[in-house]
Design a protein around this nucleic acid. Structure first.
Lengths: 217, 217
DNA sequence: AAATTAATTTAGACAAAACTAAATATATGA
DNA sequence: TCATATATTTAGTTTTGTCTAAATTAATTT
């Protein structure tokens, strides 16, 4: 098995690869993990030697197939624990991340299989992110950022990009949650702000908000 | 907070203190944690400097009040997780120890409070051991080792001393569990073996078994 | 294209927690 | 009580994962 530090690097690189769609710079890894670039270089070299990363000096790193699988299993555990915390222990969705960050490192396949069954094999975590299966396969649903929709389009909120407490509480306050139906009533080209219809009410939202909501049409 | 290694030492010393009822020798600590005596000495000195242990060179260590509390909270977490694993995830009682050993180090008071509530504030873990309260206070029930009972005495199984899989499976196979009523039909002084009545059946058990069952009269 | 800036890597140091081997207390037995 | 055996500690080393500072490579600007 892998050390705590190794697991954290693999997970970070997994997430960064989705942003970059090309090799992830050492600096980005270091920043994500709140460490110095030299530390990231060291660990990237070590993980590369172990066959978990493809890495070329000065060129950044990508996960190998093996690395991708290890990362996906960690993310699977993280998201299953988040479901547990929200569904069974009644945590708010903005409180669970730091706890799941610890729980994701518990080593026991049997535990995760049983937790998965106990939770009725959920497909998504409380933030709408898909839960990888046992083999690390992630089904990525077709989804758009709300800010890409045009006047008149209707969709359902399926996920959030930001996961800060502030943002999640902003949504809670307005009773906007995963599954909420949203209609675009208008769009302002000048500042990217939008007017939405949610249930019976109208909402004005800024561009920044619109860019952090994932919608399925 | 304390490191993983520190927590493991505190827990080990807590358990050993109950066996010894006097300062615990360095060697015993090392053995319990499967480490060399020199490593134990190092850590004991460090924990002593931090005020968690009372330690005198060559004389062994005891937990300070603070150390006792920290250890009790770790044990509280361990036992609550064991209840969760058995009651909610349907693990057998002989499978849970290694997993709880990892889960006991998760840091979140809120998590433990909610887990405790989710499990209906259990008083005992699946092996019959009492669960310390939030403040680390353990209520120790009056209990005897089965081998101390004499012919004719009746009691209820409230705990086990051994927790190896082999032993727990031995009990499972005979349908003896926490809460099972036991009557002593006879006792052989020569080898310490006993004849018991459990439900409608008679059981013959060796001294070794009798010494590992805790009974409440 | 050369000079400057930014990103990355290397080299060397440190802390934590383990180890081995040697030194020193303590306990035991003749 | 003295000698020996056992337990414990000390000293010095190793590994992991971090750091700082210096060196090197790549990217950008003039």
């Amino acid at each position: 098995m892998y050390t705590l530090a190794e697991e954290n690097y693999l997970k970070a690189i997994f997430h960064l690869e989705q942003e970059y769609n090309k090799p992830v710079p050492t600096n980005a890894i270091a920043e994500k993990l709140a460490m110095k670039a030299s530390s990231a270089t060291d660990m990237v070299q070590k993980l590369s030697d172990k066959g978990l990363l493809n890495y070329r000096r000065y060129k950044g790193a990508t996960l190998s197939d093996e690395g991708k699988k290890v990362a996906a299993i960690i993310i699977r555990k993280h998201r299953l624990w988040e479901v547990f915390l929200v569904e069974k222990l009644n945590f708010q969705w903005d409180e669970v991340h730091p706890i799941a960050e610890q729980l994701e490192h518990i080593q026991s396949d049997e535990l995760i299989n049983r937790l998965d069954a106990f939770l009725d094999h959920p497909d998504y975590d409380p933030h709408g992110d898909p839960i990888p299966d046992k083999n690390g396969v992630i089904k990525t649903a077709e989804k758009k950022v709300l800010s890409e929709l045009t006047k008149g389009q209707v969709g359902v909120l399926v996920g959030v990009r930001e996961t800060s407490s502030e943002f999640l509480q902003y949504l809670d306050k307005r009773d906007i949650a995963i599954g909420t139906k949203i209609r675009v009533l208008g769009r302002e080209f000048f500042d990217g702000s939008m007017v939405l219809q949610v249930r019976k009410e109208q909402f004005f939202i800024s561009k920044k908000i619109a860019e952090n909501l994932y919608i399925q049409i």
